[in-house]
Nucleic acid binder design. Structure first.
Lengths: 248, 248
DNA sequence: CCGGAAACTTGATCCGGATCAAGTCACGGA
DNA sequence: TCCGTGACTTGATCCGGATCAAGTTTCCGG
């Protein structure tokens, strides 16, 4: 592990409140590794041997069933994923693959389980992390069930703008086909819908999103804090597409 | 609170491992109440003042957005709900209403938050509960994104049969329109799909489900433990429709 | 036992989104 | 720089499921 990585991990919400000795125990069994883009890190159904911490790069969490596949989330630095499976010592419900060259810390899940039983402060952090992750998935499920395709796109584009500081222009943080899968539609449908959304105040130029009429976009998206957040903890929950930074 | 209720609560996975003194602290601030059918217990967005424990009856968790509504889960005795919101001291993401006359224990969430910081064993139980709840919602989301309407129905009907002990016949535990909403479709669509499912080994007679050809039904449903369970903890997670008992 | 509301079914039609099929474009590797 | 692969777009068509509109049944309350 690199010298600058340890303090970075230490400052994560999940690890920042635990006792130093317990943190060291965890890190003793942990190791960092770099993976090329497009590598499958785990397959759903595998035993949950490691808690994963993304230090660099991007990791996609996705699921498969009967030949179909869908994106569930994208995790970016510095975020953790599959905490719940580690804790329950149960098989992963999702697969994971790197979207680009990524550096990942692997913490043996047996150590995680042992430590949160001995360190009450760590246990509290785990609780906070899980509660945030739970709420994030509930939000996602609500969006899927209550919104149409166009509304989900509009909400997503608006939310990303807000997260970046209400910028009028920004770059999509992920490929469109991945975004389509995350939002529960086909790439073709996303492509077409984006075009019709020009009438609702948002335009795309390649990966660049340009909000031309925020009020109009908001009228369609009807942003709702109980679906779209803000939920400060969601950023660390590993269940959202990542935020972006604005242009210019 | 009734005398027989305390030990029942005490034996819940969430409370069974905590120190007696802390359990008593929690119960001191708690109170039980009976509600008629069809009563709205909470509205999404409300502050999370109480952890709810269902002792009798059935409670529906649902969400609303822009005039639309969908069922997210049904909680039955003895189960808890909205633990995550209590812990984060955040607004409820879901509304709740009684489906029938229900008796519910309300535990002040401030007490819950205080106690899990002082009782490491309780903290561990909370972690297990949340991890289970998280995984349940992920399963639900996977089903919504990966399966068609018919496949979700088939999976549901088969799963209920398995939960009841592989019975060939059982009664639906909830109204069809609620089931439709839970599965993410309209009542009309459920009704029609059920009729066409007779060709796939399952028949309905009112509320009674009769599996006429389990292999055929399974071929359609393609049950997958990473979507349908079993996950022993899911039953207490408050995010599934309830199990049923078989006929005869 | 009756009346009415709500759940459920059935039918007709509509529409959102999927699928299939060509393209075109952009990027990364040789 | 060129090439090839994969992302993206665009078009045509299809289909699952929603919607609208009546019935019909069930069940609860008076």
């Amino acid at each position: 592990m690199r010298p600058h990585e340890l303090p970075e991990i230490r400052h994560l919400p999940l690890f920042r409140d635990m006792m130093q000795v317990h943190f060291e125990t965890l890190m003793l069994g942990a190791y960092a590794q770099s993976f090329p883009a497009g590598l499958e890190l785990m397959r759903q159904g595998d035993p949950a041997d490691f808690l994963h911490v993304v230090m660099e790069g991007q990791v996609e969490l996705f699921s498969q069933w009967g030949g179909r596949e869908c994106t569930m989330a994208v995790v970016r630095p510095v975020g953790t994923f599959i905490l719940a499976a580690c804790i329950k010592d149960a098989p992963y419900l999702m697969s994971a693959r790197t979207l680009e060259r990524s550096r990942i810390i692997l913490v043996p899940s047996s150590d995680v389980r042992a430590v949160f039983r001995r360190d009450p402060d760590f246990a509290v952090s785990v609780i906070q992390e899980l509660a945030g992750a739970y709420r994030s998935v509930v939000r996602h499920a609500k969006g899927l069930k209550l919104r149409t395709s166009r509304e989900r796109i509009a909400s997503y584009l608006l939310r990303q703008s807000v997260l970046a500081g209400n910028v009028a222009s920004y770059h999509l943080p992920v490929e469109k086909r991945l975004l389509a899968s995350y939002l529960g539609m086909t790439p073709e449908n996303l492509s077409r819908a984006l075009k019709t959304l020009e009438a609702d105040g948002v335009k795309l130029d390649g990966m660049r999103v340009i909000i031309t009429d925020r009020a109009s976009l908001a009228a369609l998206a009807q942003p709702d804090s109980l679906i779209d957040g803000p939920d400060p903890d969601a950023l660390h929950a590993g269940v959202n597409l990542p935020p972006v930074s604005g242009d210019r």
